[in-house]
Amino acid sequence: MPPQDLSRVPNAALPSKSSVAIYRFPGGGGLLWAVATSADKSLDFVGQTRATLAALDEHLRRAGVDRNRLVRAEVIVTDHDNKPAFDEVWASWAVDGHGPVRSFVQSVMPEGDLIEIIITAALPEPV
């Protein structure tokens, strides 16, 4: 039986992997973890970055929170030389003064993926 304080949104392509996981603390609040890539693999790096951030916005929206609640972001790319382009897109997406702790690393990725972003967001206590 799955734990009642933990919910998951399975990845449609790989049901043993979650796209979103939410843990609710006893007494309220919690954490959300989400991962996204661009659905359109034909886009260039900047296009995939924007599409990935839009997918993360949707995960946040479904959880009832926004970018102000982000506490951590892990950015995985196929080419570290894209960091300046990423930073430019990120600066227009992230909330000034409320940006999460962020890492940016290069890795081998599945064919067509140029970027993957994993976020952690703090969920507020219910009102």
Rank of each mutant, 00 (worst) to 15 (best):
V127M: 02
V9K: 08
K17F: 09
S42D: 08
D40R: 13
S103D: 15
P84M: 08
I115V: 15
D87S: 10
L114A: 09
N11F: 10
K17R: 09
M109L: 15
H98F: 09
E125A: 15
I118H: 09
I76W: 00
V46Q: 07
D66L: 08
A12H: 08
L56W: 00
G27D: 02
L31V: 11
V101Q: 10
G30P: 13
A51N: 10
W33K: 08
G28A: 04
V77A: 06
P110D: 12
H59C: 10
S16G: 13
L56A: 04
D96V: 14
L14C: 13
N82T: 14
H98D: 11
G27E: 03
E58F: 00
R69W: 01
K17N: 09
D66C: 08
K17T: 13
S38E: 02
Q48E: 02
V71Q: 05
R69Q: 14
L114C: 01
V89E: 07
G28Y: 01
M1F: 07
A63T: 06
M1Q: 07
V108H: 05
A55P: 10
V101A: 11
G64L: 06
I115L: 07
R50A: 09
T37L: 05
L60Q: 02
K17D: 12
E125R: 12
R50V: 15
E116K: 12
S107Y: 04
L14Y: 08
L6T: 15
R62Y: 01
G97Q: 06
S92G: 14
W33R: 10
S7Q: 10
R62P: 05
D40C: 09
A121I: 09
V105S: 13
V108L: 04
L70A: 06
G99T: 15
S19L: 14
N82L: 01
L56R: 00
R50Q: 13
T49I: 05
D5M: 07
P110I: 07
V127H: 06
T78C: 03
V127N: 03
F104H: 10
T52C: 11
H80L: 15
A94P: 02
N68D: 13
P84A: 12
E125L: 10
T49F: 02
D40N: 15
V77E: 02
I76K: 05
D44M: 00
L114V: 04
D96Y: 02
G47N: 04
E111I: 13
S19C: 08
Y23W: 11
V108R: 08
V35R: 03
L53V: 11
L14H: 13
S7P: 03
H98N: 14
L31G: 04
W90S: 08
F25W: 06
L70T: 09
S19W: 01
K41H: 12
V77R: 01
L32R: 03
S38G: 11
I117E: 05
P124D: 04
H98V: 10
H59Y: 04
D87N: 12
A13D: 14
A21I: 10
E88P: 04
S107L: 00
M109F: 01
A85W: 00
I76T: 15
N82F: 03
N68G: 14
V35M: 01
G112A: 07
P110L: 09
V105P: 01
S18M: 03
G64S: 06
P2W: 03
R69F: 03
P26I: 09
H59W: 03
A13F: 04
V46D: 07
V105D: 13
F86W: 11
I118C: 04
K83L: 14
L32W: 02
Q106W: 01
P84G: 12
A55W: 00
P15A: 15
E116Y: 00
R50S: 10
